[in-house]
Simulated assay, not measured.
Amino acid sequence: MSAHIVYDSAPLGSVIRYFDGTPKPPARFTRKVVDWQSRNGTGRLVKKEPPRSRATYSSPACFTLHEGDFGEGGIIVVSVRRTWSVESDLRFEIVERPAIGMVRVLQDLGDSRELLHLARDREAAERWLASYRYSRAYLEEVSADEVGADVIEGRTAA
């Protein structure tokens, strides 16, 4: 599917796979493998931003995938995120959608919402929020209505 479809139909918290359709090169070609990995991977959808138009600049809609955190001893040193424009030439696939009963910890940033954490239930989300103390964060539960609408409209995970 195209990046437009991910932007339009994937809910925050979905696991998205992106790929360019080329086979992975043999491991002995380290530079080619690194290039291939930059265009093939997975991440959790954490943000969608609407298109913007200014007097001297305009940008298309985009979305951000969180690919992972690196650190040690519970301290995150680097958080890897990639932002893709809806005009990207890559192909995308929704691998997994948030299940009913999961709770999103969200924060509003300008015109968009950002997923801070996806918890298995409200109690886990409240514990996470108490530990990480975001001042403008709020909770949103994944409802049966949301999941049911995805199934009815044909937006189930591939």
Rank of each mutant, 00 (worst) to 15 (best):
G68R: 01
L106N: 03
V78Q: 15
S131K: 10
T64M: 04
R81G: 06
D20A: 09
S38T: 01
H4A: 07
D121W: 06
R104M: 04
E49D: 13
W36D: 04
A149N: 05
I76D: 02
R31Q: 01
R82Y: 06
A137Y: 10
G154W: 05
V15G: 01
L129W: 00
R97N: 06
R155V: 06
E72F: 15
I75W: 07
S85R: 02
H4V: 15
R54F: 13
R28S: 09
S59A: 15
G148E: 13
V105D: 02
G43K: 01
Y138H: 14
E87S: 08
V103L: 08
Y134T: 05
R31V: 15
K47Y: 02
L118Y: 01
P26H: 07
I16N: 00
G148P: 00
P23F: 03
Y138N: 11
Y138F: 14
H4T: 12
D111I: 14
F19T: 09
P26G: 08
S135I: 03
W128S: 06
L115C: 07
S58G: 10
L45F: 06
A99H: 09
D89H: 07
E72S: 15
E141T: 04
E96Q: 09
G41V: 09
A27R: 12
P60A: 13
A149P: 00
M102S: 10
R82I: 08
D121C: 03
I5E: 14
S9V: 15
D8L: 14
T42G: 01
P50A: 08
L115M: 06
C62E: 10
I76P: 04
S2L: 13
L116G: 00
S85K: 04
V33T: 04
V86T: 11
V46I: 13
Y134G: 07
S59I: 10
D69C: 09
Y18R: 01
R122C: 04
R91T: 04
F29K: 12
G154P: 08
I100Y: 05
D69L: 12
I94W: 01
E93Q: 08
G41E: 07
Q37D: 08
S2M: 05
N40V: 07
V77G: 01
R44H: 06
A10K: 03
A10R: 00
G154A: 05
R44Q: 12
D89M: 10
E153V: 01
D108I: 09
V95P: 02
Y138P: 02
W128G: 00
V151P: 12
E123P: 01
R120H: 07
R82T: 02
E49R: 13
L65S: 00
H66E: 12
H4S: 15
P11L: 11
A149C: 07
E93M: 08
S112F: 10
S14N: 11
Y18I: 05
A149T: 10
K32C: 08
R31Y: 07
S131F: 00
E146W: 11
E146G: 11
D111R: 15
E140V: 11
P25I: 08
G13S: 03
